[in-house]
Amino acid sequence: MAIYGLWVINKAGGLVYQRNFADGLAQLTSNEYLVLAGTLHGIHAITSRLSPMGSSSGAQVIEGESFKMTILLTASGTKFVVLTSLAEASPDALLQKVYEIYSDAVMKNPFHTPEMPIRSEGFDTRITALIGSG
């Protein structure tokens, strides 16, 4: 049970927030994270088109051998991605809470420019309270 990281991806595929918590995954540079976020954004769009049965959402959970990525796509197109261990029980509930904090601490912040990187101490503190300092 470990939470490795949290990403927020804006509707254009840009990474606007990235934070690592527990160790266990590779430490990448911010540039590499930006590229991965862009890739994920593209894959997410393609996966919804590959459905063999009716219409489909994009990928919700992507699993590797030792960790998984859980993706929450909000109505506004912003994606929340959490990287956890495979055993993590409810990453979906966690993402819902992160979304709530995002709405309160970022969207209601008059100094925040939409679609731009999140630099808000309030958001950081509340995420720390939710997940832990890492």
Binding site: L25, T39, L40, T47, S55, V61, E63, G64, E65
Partner: peptide, 25 residues
């Protein structure tokens, strides 16, 4: 292929991509 590379990059090991899930498949 993209997911395989992403998982390899994120894990920093030679880890394989196993599966992904959407609402329909």
């Amino acid at each position: 292929l993209s997911l395989r590379n992403m998982i390899k990059k994120l894990s920093g090991r030679d880890e394989q991509f196993v599966n992904y899930r959407t609402s329909a498949y």
